[in-house]
Amino acid sequence: MKIAVCIKRVPDMDVRFKIAPSGTAVDETGLKFDISDFDGYAVEAALQIKEKLNAGEVVVISLGGDVVQETLRKAMSMGADRAVQLKADGTHVDSFAIASALAAELKDGGYDLIMFGRMSIDTAHGVTGAIVAELLGLPCVNAISKLEFDGRTAKMRRELEGAYELVECALPAVVTIDEGIARPRYPSLKGIMAAKKKPLESKPAQLPAARLSLDALALPPERAAGRIIGEGTAAVPELVRLLKEEAKVL
C-alpha cells in the first residue's frame, strides 16, 4: 500500500506567544517547532499499516520553507521512507491554496491512501484534507480513530459524543486522523541515522493565488493580578462579599 501523509510544522504550543511586529504572524524567536500533533498520529498510523502489511511505502509531504526539511527528516527518522518538500517561503493561510498545491503533487503519485491530521494545532482550520479529497475526486472520511482494511476497502471508526460511527469506503481515499489511533513513536538513534540517507525531494509548490488573507492577530486581554484578602476562616466573609459584588460570580 502506498501511503502519503501530509504534515505541518507547528510551534510548540506550551509557550506564551508574542506577535511579530508585522502584526499578522507569531514572533518565532525562541520557539520550538515539531510535527503538528494530529499529523504525528497520522504518521504513526501510516507506519503501523505498513508494518502490519509488511509492504508498501510511506511518503511524507510538507509545504513550506526549508525549515520544514527538519520536520520531514523527523518523520523519516520515525520510519517514513521518503519525503517531499513543496517549497514555499513565507506564511500561507489560505487552506484552499495549500490544498491545491498538495493535490497537484498527490494527483499522479499512485497513492492508495492519503492521510492528514484532523486539523493543525496552531491554526486549526481542519479543512485541508477535505479540500484535497474534493480536488482529487476521492472519498474523504474525517477524524477517524481506528482504521483497518479488508482488501481494497477501508473500515474506519469515528468518535462521536457518547457514540461512535463505523464507516467504510473504497480505496483510494483521503482520511484525516484523530488522536487515539496510535501514539507516535519516538525516533530511535537507528531511525535518526537512517533518515539522513533517505531521499528528501524539494520542488516548488504550485500555489495558486491566495483568496484569503490574515489581517491581524491579537492576544487575549491580560488577566488582572490576583489579590490576597486575608488568611484563614476570618477572610471568608470578605471573600464571599467580593465574589458576589465585585466579581459577580456568586
Partner: peptide
C-alpha cells in the same frame, strides 16, 4: 543535526 534529533527524541 543528529544531536538535536537525539536530544529531542530523548
Amino acid at each position: 543535526e543528529s544531536l538535536a534529533a537525539i536530544l529531542d527524541a530523548f
